[in-house]
Protein backbone atom coordinates (compact mmCIF):
# COMPACT_ATOMS: atom_id res chain seq x y z
CA UNK A 1 0.00 0.00 0.00
CA UNK A 2 1.65 3.24 -1.07
CA UNK A 3 0.38 5.61 1.55
CA UNK A 4 1.05 8.62 -0.60
CA UNK A 5 -1.79 7.58 -2.90
CA UNK A 6 -4.35 8.05 -0.17
CA UNK A 7 -5.60 11.57 0.04
CA UNK A 8 -8.36 13.49 1.68
CA UNK A 9 -9.69 13.85 5.20
CA UNK A 10 -13.33 12.83 4.93
CA UNK A 11 -16.12 13.32 7.41
CA UNK A 12 -18.72 10.58 7.09
CA UNK A 13 -21.65 12.90 7.58
CA UNK A 14 -24.65 11.75 9.55
CA UNK A 15 -28.08 13.14 8.88
CA UNK A 16 -31.46 12.58 10.42
CA UNK A 17 -34.79 13.58 8.94
CA UNK A 18 -33.22 15.97 6.50
CA UNK A 19 -30.91 17.65 9.01
CA UNK A 20 -27.19 17.17 9.40
CA UNK A 21 -26.06 16.12 12.86
CA UNK A 22 -24.05 18.85 14.56
CA UNK A 23 -21.19 16.47 15.21
CA UNK A 24 -20.58 16.10 11.47
CA UNK A 25 -20.19 19.85 11.17
CA UNK A 26 -17.95 19.97 14.24
CA UNK A 27 -15.75 17.36 12.58
CA UNK A 28 -15.53 19.37 9.39
CA UNK A 29 -14.05 22.18 11.45
CA UNK A 30 -11.47 19.98 13.13
CA UNK A 31 -10.94 18.02 9.93
CA UNK A 32 -9.96 21.21 8.19
CA UNK A 33 -7.36 21.97 10.85
CA UNK A 34 -5.91 18.46 10.51
CA UNK A 35 -5.95 18.60 6.73
CA UNK A 36 -4.07 21.88 6.77
CA UNK A 37 -1.42 20.37 9.04
CA UNK A 38 -0.80 17.41 6.76
CA UNK A 39 -1.12 19.34 3.55
CA UNK A 40 -4.37 17.77 2.53
CA UNK A 41 -7.99 18.78 2.06
CA UNK A 42 -11.16 18.08 4.00
CA UNK A 43 -14.30 16.68 2.42
CA UNK A 44 -17.41 14.78 3.30
CA UNK A 45 -19.34 11.66 2.35
CA UNK A 46 -23.10 11.96 2.47
CA UNK A 47 -25.27 8.84 2.40
CA UNK A 48 -29.04 8.67 2.33
CA UNK A 49 -32.09 9.36 0.24
CA UNK A 50 -33.01 12.85 -0.91
CA UNK A 51 -29.99 14.19 0.96
CA UNK A 52 -28.26 15.97 -1.91
CA UNK A 53 -29.48 19.41 -0.77
CA UNK A 54 -27.46 18.94 2.43
CA UNK A 55 -24.23 18.87 0.47
CA UNK A 56 -24.20 22.65 0.24
CA UNK A 57 -24.38 22.96 4.02
CA UNK A 58 -21.35 20.70 4.27
CA UNK A 59 -19.52 22.92 1.84
CA UNK A 60 -20.54 26.00 3.81
CA UNK A 61 -18.88 24.44 6.83
CA UNK A 62 -15.63 23.78 5.05
CA UNK A 63 -15.88 20.69 2.84
CA UNK A 64 -13.95 21.05 -0.41
CA UNK A 65 -15.65 18.05 -1.91
CA UNK A 66 -18.82 16.24 -0.99
CA UNK A 67 -19.37 12.74 -2.35
CA UNK A 68 -23.06 12.00 -2.34
CA UNK A 69 -24.58 8.52 -2.37
CA UNK A 70 -28.24 9.39 -2.83
CA UNK A 71 -30.38 6.27 -3.23
CA UNK A 72 -33.93 5.56 -2.03
CA UNK A 73 -32.70 2.25 -0.62
CA UNK A 74 -30.36 4.14 1.68
CA UNK A 75 -33.07 6.24 3.28
CA UNK A 76 -32.73 4.48 6.61
CA UNK A 77 -29.35 3.72 8.12
CA UNK A 78 -28.34 0.11 7.50
CA UNK A 79 -25.04 -1.12 8.87
CA UNK A 80 -23.94 -3.48 6.17
CA UNK A 81 -25.31 -1.43 3.25
CA UNK A 82 -23.62 1.75 4.47
CA UNK A 83 -20.43 -0.19 5.07
CA UNK A 84 -20.58 -1.45 1.50
CA UNK A 85 -21.07 2.11 0.26
CA UNK A 86 -18.02 3.27 2.17
CA UNK A 87 -16.07 0.33 0.82
CA UNK A 88 -16.99 1.51 -2.66
CA UNK A 89 -15.95 5.04 -1.75
CA UNK A 90 -12.63 3.79 -0.41
CA UNK A 91 -11.89 1.79 -3.54
CA UNK A 92 -12.85 4.64 -5.86
CA UNK A 93 -11.43 7.63 -4.07
CA UNK A 94 -8.62 6.22 -1.91
CA UNK A 95 -9.17 8.54 1.07
CA UNK A 96 -6.56 9.10 3.76
CA UNK A 97 -8.71 9.72 6.81
CA UNK A 98 -12.30 8.97 7.87
CA UNK A 99 -13.81 11.02 10.69
CA UNK A 100 -17.08 9.71 12.08
CA UNK A 101 -19.30 11.24 14.75
CA UNK A 102 -19.48 8.87 17.74
CA UNK A 103 -23.23 8.79 17.79
CA UNK A 104 -24.96 5.45 18.27
CA UNK A 105 -24.99 5.06 14.51
CA UNK A 106 -21.39 6.21 14.18
CA UNK A 107 -20.22 3.73 16.78
CA UNK A 108 -22.16 1.02 15.00
CA UNK A 109 -20.84 1.86 11.53
CA UNK A 110 -17.25 2.72 12.39
CA UNK A 111 -16.02 -0.72 13.51
CA UNK A 112 -17.91 -2.50 10.73
CA UNK A 113 -16.24 -0.36 8.11
CA UNK A 114 -12.87 -0.66 9.82
CA UNK A 115 -13.13 -4.40 9.62
CA UNK A 116 -14.29 -4.47 6.02
CA UNK A 117 -11.35 -2.25 5.07
CA UNK A 118 -8.99 -4.04 7.47
CA UNK A 119 -7.83 -0.79 8.98
CA UNK A 120 -7.44 0.81 12.37
CA UNK A 121 -10.25 2.64 14.14
CA UNK A 122 -9.85 4.70 17.29
CA UNK A 123 -13.13 5.29 19.06
CA UNK A 124 -14.49 8.16 21.17
CA UNK A 125 -11.62 10.51 20.54
CA UNK A 126 -11.36 13.66 22.56
CA UNK A 127 -8.38 15.01 20.69
CA UNK A 128 -7.09 14.93 17.12
CA UNK A 129 -3.61 15.96 16.11
CA UNK A 130 -0.75 15.11 13.76
CA UNK A 131 2.35 13.09 14.55
CA UNK A 132 5.86 14.46 14.19
CA UNK A 133 6.11 12.64 10.87
CA UNK A 134 3.69 15.21 9.51
CA UNK A 135 1.32 12.68 8.04
CA UNK A 136 0.03 10.29 10.69
CA UNK A 137 -3.02 11.34 12.64
CA UNK A 138 -2.69 11.07 16.42
CA UNK A 139 -5.98 10.08 18.03
CA UNK A 140 -6.33 10.85 21.75
CA UNK A 141 -8.97 9.01 23.74
CA UNK A 142 -9.85 8.13 27.35
CA UNK A 143 -9.49 4.55 28.59
CA UNK A 144 -9.73 2.58 31.82
CA UNK A 145 -13.01 4.22 32.65
CA UNK A 146 -11.61 7.66 31.98
CA UNK A 147 -8.71 7.31 34.35
CA UNK A 148 -6.09 7.57 31.64
CA UNK A 149 -5.70 9.06 28.17
CA UNK A 150 -4.10 7.20 25.31
CA UNK A 151 -2.61 8.52 22.07
CA UNK A 152 -3.22 6.09 19.23
CA UNK A 153 -1.74 6.01 15.74
CA UNK A 154 -2.46 3.96 12.65
CA UNK A 155 0.71 4.22 10.63
CA UNK A 156 0.52 1.62 7.88
CA UNK A 157 -3.15 1.15 7.11
CA UNK A 158 -5.63 3.32 5.29
CA UNK A 159 -7.99 4.92 5.83
CA UNK A 160 -6.99 6.17 9.26
CA UNK A 161 -10.28 6.10 11.13
CA UNK A 162 -11.62 7.68 14.25
CA UNK A 163 -14.96 8.34 15.88
CA UNK A 164 -15.35 11.55 17.84
CA UNK A 165 -18.02 12.36 20.39
CA UNK A 166 -20.39 15.28 19.84
CA UNK A 167 -19.46 18.49 21.66
CA UNK A 168 -15.75 17.73 21.72
CA UNK A 169 -15.03 20.25 18.99
CA UNK A 170 -16.85 23.47 18.25
CA UNK A 171 -18.92 23.82 15.12
CA UNK A 172 -17.19 26.14 12.64
CA UNK A 173 -19.05 29.21 11.47
CA UNK A 174 -20.98 28.66 8.24
CA UNK A 175 -19.78 30.53 5.18
CA UNK A 176 -22.68 30.72 2.72
CA UNK A 177 -20.34 31.96 0.01
CA UNK A 178 -18.05 28.92 0.20
CA UNK A 179 -17.81 26.81 -2.92
CA UNK A 180 -17.00 23.18 -3.37
CA UNK A 181 -17.46 20.20 -5.60
CA UNK A 182 -20.44 17.89 -5.29
CA UNK A 183 -19.82 14.47 -6.79
CA UNK A 184 -22.71 12.07 -7.20
CA UNK A 185 -21.76 8.47 -6.63
CA UNK A 186 -23.49 5.18 -7.10
CA UNK A 187 -22.58 1.98 -5.34
CA UNK A 188 -23.81 -1.38 -6.59
CA UNK A 189 -26.00 -2.71 -3.85
CA UNK A 190 -27.77 -6.05 -3.82
CA UNK A 191 -30.47 -7.24 -1.43
CA UNK A 192 -27.86 -9.28 0.41
CA UNK A 193 -26.02 -6.10 1.34
CA UNK A 194 -28.92 -5.12 3.57
CA UNK A 195 -28.52 -7.67 6.34
CA UNK A 196 -30.95 -6.02 8.75
CA UNK A 197 -34.34 -4.47 8.19
CA UNK A 198 -35.53 -1.15 9.57
CA UNK A 199 -38.95 -1.52 11.14
CA UNK A 200 -39.69 1.80 12.82
CA UNK A 201 -38.37 4.69 14.85
CA UNK A 202 -39.89 5.25 18.29
CA UNK A 203 -39.29 8.82 19.37
CA UNK A 204 -38.75 9.59 23.02
CA UNK A 205 -37.55 12.48 25.05
CA UNK A 206 -40.79 14.38 25.43
CA UNK A 207 -39.38 17.49 23.86
CA UNK A 208 -37.16 19.90 25.69
CA UNK A 209 -33.55 20.65 24.98
CA UNK A 210 -31.33 17.61 24.48
CA UNK A 211 -28.34 17.54 26.76
CA UNK A 212 -25.93 17.09 23.87
CA UNK A 213 -27.04 20.44 22.53
CA UNK A 214 -27.73 22.37 25.70
CA UNK A 215 -25.78 25.44 26.71
CA UNK A 216 -26.72 24.89 30.33
CA UNK A 217 -27.08 21.56 32.08
CA UNK A 218 -28.43 21.14 35.60
CA UNK A 219 -27.41 17.67 36.63
CA UNK A 220 -28.48 15.51 39.57
CA UNK A 221 -26.71 12.61 41.22
CA UNK A 222 -27.14 10.20 44.11
CA UNK A 223 -27.76 13.11 46.44
CA UNK A 224 -31.13 13.71 44.80
CA UNK A 225 -32.49 10.70 46.69
CA UNK A 226 -35.35 10.13 44.30
CA UNK A 227 -36.94 11.08 41.01
CA UNK A 228 -38.82 14.11 42.26
CA UNK A 229 -36.03 16.73 41.96
CA UNK A 230 -35.45 15.79 38.30
CA UNK A 231 -39.01 16.81 37.46
CA UNK A 232 -39.01 19.52 40.12
CA UNK A 233 -36.25 21.86 41.17
CA UNK A 234 -33.62 20.73 38.63
CA UNK A 235 -36.04 21.01 35.72
CA UNK A 236 -37.23 24.39 36.95
CA UNK A 237 -33.71 25.81 37.04
CA UNK A 238 -32.83 24.22 33.71
CA UNK A 239 -35.92 25.64 32.02
CA UNK A 240 -35.25 29.07 33.53
CA UNK A 241 -31.78 29.08 31.96
CA UNK A 242 -32.94 27.53 28.67
CA UNK A 243 -31.04 24.33 29.33
CA UNK A 244 -31.51 20.64 30.02
CA UNK A 245 -31.48 18.26 32.95
CA UNK A 246 -28.62 15.79 33.21
CA UNK A 247 -27.87 12.93 35.55
CA UNK A 248 -25.05 10.85 36.90
CA UNK A 249 -24.99 7.10 36.39
CA UNK A 250 -26.10 6.55 39.98
CA UNK A 251 -29.30 8.48 39.41
CA UNK A 252 -30.06 6.65 36.16
CA UNK A 253 -29.30 3.25 37.67
CA UNK A 254 -31.63 4.03 40.57
CA UNK A 255 -34.37 4.62 38.03
CA UNK A 256 -34.87 8.29 38.91
CA UNK A 257 -34.47 9.50 35.33
CA UNK A 258 -33.93 7.75 32.04
CA UNK A 259 -30.62 6.99 30.39
CA UNK A 260 -31.03 9.67 27.72
CA UNK A 261 -29.95 12.15 30.42
CA UNK A 262 -26.90 10.27 31.61
CA UNK A 263 -23.61 12.12 31.47
CA UNK A 264 -20.37 10.22 31.76
CA UNK A 265 -18.00 7.63 30.39
CA UNK A 266 -20.80 5.21 29.59
CA UNK A 267 -23.33 7.96 29.02
CA UNK A 268 -23.02 11.15 27.00
CA UNK A 269 -20.20 13.64 26.69
CA UNK A 270 -21.36 17.20 27.07
CA UNK A 271 -19.64 20.56 26.79
CA UNK A 272 -22.11 23.22 27.82
CA UNK A 273 -21.30 26.74 28.90
CA UNK A 274 -22.52 25.98 32.40
CA UNK A 275 -22.70 22.60 34.11
CA UNK A 276 -24.25 22.51 37.57
CA UNK A 277 -23.63 19.26 39.44
CA UNK A 278 -26.10 18.75 42.30
CA UNK A 279 -25.46 15.95 44.77
CA UNK A 280 -22.92 14.41 42.41
CA UNK A 281 -19.74 13.17 44.06
CA UNK A 282 -17.60 13.52 40.96
CA UNK A 283 -16.39 10.01 40.17
CA UNK A 284 -13.91 9.86 37.29
CA UNK A 285 -16.49 8.19 35.05
CA UNK A 286 -18.80 11.16 35.42
CA UNK A 287 -16.06 13.75 35.01
CA UNK A 288 -15.05 12.06 31.77
CA UNK A 289 -18.38 13.15 30.38
CA UNK A 290 -18.43 16.80 31.45
CA UNK A 291 -14.97 18.25 32.02
CA UNK A 292 -15.32 19.85 28.63
CA UNK A 293 -17.83 22.29 30.15
CA UNK A 294 -16.82 25.92 30.23
CA UNK A 295 -17.93 26.54 33.78
CA UNK A 296 -18.58 23.82 36.34
CA UNK A 297 -20.56 24.64 39.47
CA UNK A 298 -20.75 21.94 42.12
CA UNK A 299 -23.18 21.65 45.02
CA UNK A 300 -22.61 18.88 47.54
CA UNK A 301 -23.06 18.26 51.27
CA UNK A 302 -19.68 16.54 51.48
CA UNK A 303 -16.76 18.97 51.49
CA UNK A 304 -14.46 16.13 50.45
CA UNK A 305 -16.42 15.18 47.36
CA UNK A 306 -13.98 14.79 44.44
CA UNK A 307 -16.08 17.14 42.32
CA UNK A 308 -14.84 20.06 44.37
CA UNK A 309 -11.36 19.40 42.96
CA UNK A 310 -12.40 20.18 39.43
CA UNK A 311 -15.16 22.72 39.64
CA UNK A 312 -14.86 26.42 38.98
CA UNK A 313 -17.29 27.27 41.77
CA UNK A 314 -18.41 25.02 44.55
CA UNK A 315 -20.94 25.38 47.30
CA UNK A 316 -20.76 23.05 50.29
CA UNK A 317 -24.33 22.60 51.31
CA UNK A 318 -27.58 20.78 50.80
CA UNK A 319 -28.58 20.96 47.14
CA UNK A 320 -32.23 20.97 48.22
CA UNK A 321 -31.56 24.32 49.90
CA UNK A 322 -29.07 25.75 47.44
CA UNK A 323 -30.77 25.05 44.13
CA UNK A 324 -34.04 26.81 44.99
CA UNK A 325 -32.03 29.78 46.30
CA UNK A 326 -30.11 29.98 43.02
CA UNK A 327 -33.39 29.77 41.11
CA UNK A 328 -34.82 32.62 43.20
CA UNK A 329 -31.68 34.72 42.74
CA UNK A 330 -31.85 34.35 38.97
CA UNK A 331 -35.55 35.23 38.89
CA UNK A 332 -34.77 38.35 40.93
CA UNK A 333 -31.90 39.31 38.63
CA UNK A 334 -34.16 39.03 35.65
CA UNK A 335 -36.79 41.43 36.99
Amino acid sequence: MDLANYKGVYVIAEQFEGKLRNVSLELLGQGRILADKIGDKVGAVLIGSGVTPLAQELIAHGAHKVYVYDDPRLEQYNTTAYAKVLQHFFEEVKPNVFLVGATNIGRDLGPRVANVLKTGLTADCTGLDVDDDGKTIVWTRPALGGNIMAEIVCRENRPQMGTVRPNVFKKPAADASATGEIINMKAELSDGDFMTKFVELIKMGGGGVKIEEADVIISGGRGMNGSEPFEGMLKELATLLGGAVGASRAAVDAGWIDALHQVGQTGKTVGPKIYVACGISGAIQHLAGMTGSDCIIAINKDPDAPIFQVCDYGIVGDAFEVVPKITEAIKTLRK
Binding site: K118, G120, E151, C154, D312
Partner: peptide, 22 residues
Protein backbone atom coordinates in the same frame (compact mmCIF):
# COMPACT_ATOMS: atom_id res chain seq x y z
CA UNK B 1 -2.85 -4.49 14.86
CA UNK B 2 -3.05 -1.50 12.54
CA UNK B 3 -3.33 0.81 15.54
CA UNK B 4 -0.88 1.07 18.36
CA UNK B 5 -0.48 3.23 21.41
CA UNK B 6 1.98 6.06 21.04
CA UNK B 7 1.66 7.35 24.58
CA UNK B 8 -0.39 7.01 27.75
CA UNK B 9 -0.86 9.82 30.22
CA UNK B 10 -3.19 10.84 32.98
CA UNK B 11 -5.65 13.46 31.91
CA UNK B 12 -4.77 16.99 32.92
CA UNK B 13 -6.72 17.73 36.05
CA UNK B 14 -8.91 20.75 36.06
CA UNK B 15 -7.79 22.81 38.98
CA UNK B 16 -9.98 23.67 41.86
CA UNK B 17 -11.84 26.94 41.67
CA UNK B 18 -13.61 28.87 44.40
CA UNK B 19 -15.24 26.75 47.10
CA UNK B 20 -17.86 28.44 49.27
CA UNK B 21 -18.52 26.80 52.61
CA UNK B 22 -20.76 28.82 54.87
Amino acid sequence: SPTNVRKIFTPPQRTQGLILNN
